[in-house]
Design a protein around this nucleic acid. Structure first.
Lengths: 348, 348
DNA sequence: CAGTGTAACGAAAACGTTTAAGATATGTCA
DNA sequence: TGACATATCTTAAACGTTTTCGTTACACTG
């Protein structure tokens, strides 16, 4: 590793001069700067981020806290897309990304681990690594550890959940659901069931929007039409779909918690020998890749994960760089309806 | 942030003593150690990783280089599972994870970025952040930048590609393909087509194993049965499937590059009005989640992503911690055949 | 009692930066 | 010409650790 002192020697100046030249301070002569830059290039100099972080207390490193409900972690379709986009935007601004997790090893037995690495909380971990800010994407925002992090004075941006003391980027679930209902209603459906996922604010918004959108159209769905299932899990949706199909007054369209759960429904429907969309219509949510390569393509609401990730990165970075002036706000990102072919036109 | 000097004052000892007590050196008295540990706990002391890294030149941080062919990055199903498992294992050993990427921002215009952040190569980035080792999972291992990293003296473990000067963890594609062929053959199929993906060593191994497994059974597949498509892309597989179905001597079973591509095939088959597995059989590869919730479940070869990620982490960490004695090796991880229901029994 | 060994701790340098404060030379102005 | 401002560079302290090398006190040995 070539250090400041190496290029200083080569240039015949002090390390301070080199340091200041590189950060373009105005008390260094222009031709000196030029020469230093040239030599740095030649020697392949790069600053040592640890030394730099230690001194200026800015690491240009962002933490990412990712705890999905089912431990799916990175493999979660929605979150991984958000993260990828977040990563790219952060990258473009010169930030690196480090995962944050509590260091509670199974046995506390990390033999070679750094000194005193008893389990840390998320916040402690973030401080230990000196990250400048943290992106929190997490199913259960009310864990004490998560709350501690969010309530700290570290810049934090949350995804799909809002607190009043930190910024958030949320997918517009209210609008998403109403778009879906509108589309389905316009195709003649009146008996629309909704199977929803785990209890989160996302789910609550979708349920509220479902009821409101129907109400606006003079529809009061029976209780049996609104059922609880599990995100990304086809089995509960499969079971409930069978029950819905067996109702005396069965729905003509079923909305699922997400595209994966929807596939459980598809299987139930096929099993009963019904065709989609001729005999019954279905709609998913998320618009994951798979939903658009199935036949028929799913009618679903694609959440704009790129935009969510990008805006989250921008917001977080702006908070890091302008701690005084950055505004705490809730950024709502609309999705887009993918028509697919799983919702049929109903005439009767 | 509470520092060493803070707990030193509180304990009435020097910082050196505290530092040594925490790393359990033998030249500190037992009761002193006990007291220091207690005070650290009370005050919530954690070391500053930057200072520590700067001094000891070990960051307890691992880099991850992820470049998929199609820029899917983290959203790549196979890699994201490997990474998740890698992360968990690293976490259990007290290591954090940071993404490595070249810092070439679109315009080189990261105004607030650290000093002199012109674009760095992967290696430079890794050195800049001081990571102890790097996991490389990447489609194109022959990019100069990737080669530079792999050829450096930084500990590196590669996934699904082997070089003789660094360790690798690879999925057993030879065995995987032969297991698949064996299963299909045993169910009576003799006309087995193989649509393969992009040209990588993984693909080459599968192709070779396909030919060899058939040869062992006295089968010499016609050239039209072995076709080139694209990983994770249903369209080419769709097109080729139609062509295969239209052959005079059409196959009774088609093996696809992966489960996603297989879905393209499924659509083609449905379009022709054939049933699976009654009229034609199909097999995927990977065993992704979606493949097991479709109806019929895909017959596919599940790659053991957890094991691959875990072994990669163990290997990398062992190389980091025992630079002298760690063995450079190629670790081969077998997959497991998932029977599914997409390969039927052929009698004639 | 002089010498030696050992246990327990501290002083200080070092890691590679940044930056406040100081130093030097040069130009400007009254 | 002396005072002062300005431009350019250097010195040195600081960031929070780790670790080498002392130092001190004490016990033991012959």
């Amino acid at each position: 590793m070539v250090r400041l002192v190496d290029v200083a020697k080569r240039c015949g100046v002090s390390v301070a001069t080199v340091s200041k030249a590189l950060s373009d301070k105005k008390d260094i002569g222009e031709e000196t700067k030029e020469k230093i830059r040239k030599v740095c290039e030649e020697m392949g100099y790069f600053p040592n981020s640890s030394a730099r972080t230690l001194k200026i207390k800015r690491s240009y490193n962002l933490g990412v806290l990712f705890v999905a409900e089912d431990d799916s972690g990175l493999t979660h379709d929605y979150f991984s897309h958000v993260l990828e986009s977040f990563r790219m935007e952060a990258e473009a601004s010169g930030y690196d990304i480090t995962f944050i997790y509590s260091g509670q090893s199974p046995d506390g037995e990390s033999l070679n681990a750094p000194v005193a690495l008893r389990s840390m909380s998320y916040l402690e971990r973030a401080e230990y690594r000196g990250v400048d800010g943290v992106l929190v994407a997490c199913a259960n925002y009310y864990q004490p550890e998560v709350m501690e992090l969010i309530s700290s004075n570290l810049p934090v941006v949350t995804i799909d959940h809002s607190f009043d003391h930190c910024s958030s980027v949320v997918s517009d679930n209210v609008r998403g659901m109403s778009d879906l209902i509108e589309f389905i209603y316009d195709r003649g459906h009146r008996k629309i069931a909704f199977i929803y996922g785990n209890n989160t604010s996302v789910t609550q918004n979708r349920i509220a929007s479902y009821y409101r959108s129907l109400e606006e159209r003079g529809i009061d769905p029976p209780d049996q039409y609104v059922r609880s299932a599990v995100y990304r899990n086809p089995k509960p949706s499969y079971d409930i779909t069978l029950e819905l199909l067996d109702l005396k007054n069965s729905p003509t369209c079923i909305i699922y918690p997400d595209d994966y759960a929807c596939i459980g429904g598809l299987n139930a429907i096929k099993e009963r020998g019904y065709r989609i969309p001729e005999d019954i219509s279905v709609a998913g949510y998320d618009g994951v890749y798979i939903s658009q390569i199935l036949e028929p393509r799913l009618t679903t609401l694609r959440q704009n994960t790129e935009e969510i990730g990008r805006k989250a990165a921008r917001k977080l970075i702006s908070q890091v760089e302008n701690p005084k002036t950055a505004i705490i706000e809730k950024i709502i990102v609309p999705g887009r309806l993918l028509e697919g072919g799983s919702v049929g036109i109903l005439r009767s």
